[in-house]
Amino acid sequence: MKIKKGFILRVVGGENVVVPVGELSKQFHGMINLNETGAFMWKFFSEEHTIEEAIDALCAEYEVERERAAADVQKFADVLIQNAFIE
């Protein structure tokens, strides 16, 4: 799973903000706000990775239980898919 090219993630005023640019900005309007783990997963899925790899990465980064990490990653992946952010 990989997020489409053409989104920019930046910290603005302490908030993680994603905006579409170029061709993608015709398809998506507005901006996306992410919390800290959301931003972590966004960056992770900016490269091709599986859900399992994301769970491993989240566990390593935040020392959370695997079950909790799996739920978070699945929820995040669902949002990416529903919004057609995935290549």
């Binding site: 930046r10 603005v12 905006v19 015709k26």
Partner: peptide
Amino acid sequence: PSEVSGRLFQQILMPNEESAAI
């Protein structure tokens, strides 16, 4: 700052071109 961030984006022009957006 995070409260300002949420409010300010409604008032600025966000370019579509990548370098200008950054």
